[in-house]
């Protein structure tokens, strides 16, 4: 039982240390920006894609609008992280660390309580 408690405390300390240390090295601020290009004319077919061969039959287009997409045009991709299960922002890290810390604290308190109750029942 004593070994088990030592292991739990050790793992808890390591986890808390890991959770708290990681935000220091991780990104503190992230933001997205769009990039776009517009093509006018007839869509090229895959069969005649040899630039400079004059094989394209391009129809003139009358569009002259800016190619910058509006918000509805730009499909905001989901944030793709290398480690999807890890929190991605500083705030998320701190929240996770806080919740994790509270959870581990609850586990430790529960263990102590169980041990105390067991001892108490044995004394009776």
């Amino acid at each position: 039982m004593k070994y088990w408690r030592v292991i739990v405390i050790g793992i808890s300390a390591l986890l808390l240390w890991g959770w708290l240390l990681t935000p220091i090295a991780s990104a503190v601020s992230t933001a997205d920006s769009p990039a776009a290009i517009q093509f006018e004319g007839k869509t090229e077919s895959s069969s005649n894609q040899h630039g400079g061969d004059n094989q394209f039959h391009v129809t003139e287009a009358s569009k002259a609008s800016s190619s910058m997409p509006t918000k509805s045009d730009v499909k905001q991709p989901e944030r793709q992280a290398t480690w999807g299960w890890l929190p991605q922002t500083n705030e998320q890290w701190w929240l996770s660390a806080f919740i994790g810390g509270i959870g581990l604290l609850m586990i430790l308190i529960s263990c102590q309580l169980i041990t105390y109750l067991k001892k108490r029942s044995l004394l009776r």
Partner: peptide, 15 residues
Amino acid sequence: ARAEGIYSTTLTWSV
């Protein structure tokens, strides 16, 4: 091969 219309993507910046 290029199709008519807008091709777009997004960039994510991290500091």
